[in-house]
Design a protein around this nucleic acid. Structure first.
Lengths: 193, 193
DNA sequence: AACATGTGTTTTACCAGTAAAAGACCTACC
DNA sequence: GGTAGGTCTTTTACTGGTAAAACACATGTT
């Protein structure tokens, strides 16, 4: 459980942090294989970060596929659901600009999605009286019902997916990711550099 | 699944065995805000999975932006780098089909990328003598040099990005994600369902 | 040998996302 | 009150992805 930071020499276990797991139950996840390959080719490099970032990326990819299953049944993509969800969880109307911020997507993407969701009757828009540039978007009843119907399925699905981890493991993971995320989000400078 | 299931709210540190790091600094990451909003609207739902999956997704999104910085300087997208990296780290030629499996992308995407990378002189292809359906792709010297030049930058960048976490935290995170990932990858049925 | 079936790769048609510019509108200052 | 500059949103042009079909070839069977 020593250095992830300082040269994980031989064996990918360096970043593994757990006490006695050297031999049994070898992690056969693809990332550890990839890391081993890199270390064989470039033994001088510290591949520690890969073990974290590679896994985050890969988990995200796999989980999104998994999560998408309940959504697709409802004919929604994940970004569409995110948009509807933002409206639902805030509980009030949002402007397109606010939706951009809530869903972390570009303005153009939000415009397109709103168009489609409006056509499907899931959201409505009205203009602002004072400032005619801005629009206000709200869920229709159908939109709200759809979100409320999907969300429990979604969470149940996620629960089973995460059941690979013990509850304490899930807590740890959430906490660690929270640490990382709050720093990442706080220091946007790091990201834009 | 009761409302507040085993969710590690303030007691998270108890369950998660982290020694010194019990800094009760409130996590101000966006995910915790989102989760709070959902709980206000649907107090009966167990939002535990969101704290993990939401954060994985968000971290992935932010980290990819971060990682992309060094790549973009070299005029490569991440999927392109993944392809070149697969060739580099395996150390031998790969067929398009193998590249599909290594990089987790579709065949069509690999074909397109190979075309571009070939035009840029970073990879070469040759046919197979025995089976004329298959091609063999290898890095050119320029391609190899490019990868070798970028990789250290990339890792350095990732190291600074992860410096938000203490080394032990990084190890724990890698281990937990490895657990999750190896189960996710093993049980493909869960994902394709 | 001829054919059905399977595999490796590419092509086609299409869809969603982005960046940059445009458009519409506000505001504040001269 | 007109105009410069800023903000909110949409449009445009394009890129890159996917799914499904097409293509080219191999293989096993009769």
């Amino acid at each position: 459980m020593t250095a992830t930071n300082g040269r994980p020499q031989a064996g990918g276990d360096a970043a593994n942090g757990r006490p006695g797991n050297g031999s049994d139950a070898v992690h056969t996840d693809t990332v550890s294989t990839v890391v081993r390959q890199w270390q064989a080719v470039h033994p001088e490099l510290d591949t520690g970060p890969m073990e974290v970032i590679g896994r985050i990326n890969r988990c995200a990819a796999l989980l999104q596929q998994a999560e998408d299953a309940p959504l697709r049944r409802a004919g929604l993509s994940r970004p569409e659901f995110d948009l509807l969800g933002a409206l639902r969880r805030t509980g009030h109307e949002l402007t397109p600009g606010e939706l951009v911020r809530e869903t972390f997507s570009s303005g153009a993407a939000v415009t397109k999605r709103l168009k489609q969701l409006t056509e499907r009757g899931l959201v409505e828009r009205r203009g602002d009286a004072r400032d005619r540039r801005v629009a206000h978007v709200r869920l229709t009843d159908a939109g709200r019902d759809l979100v409320d119907g999907i969300l429990p399925e979604q969470l149940a699905y996620e629960t089973t997916v995460l059941s690979a981890l013990a509850p304490e493991g899930q807590g740890e993971l959430a906490a660690l990711l929270g640490d990382l995320l709050s720093r990442l989000e706080g220091r946007t400078g790091v990201l834009r550099a």
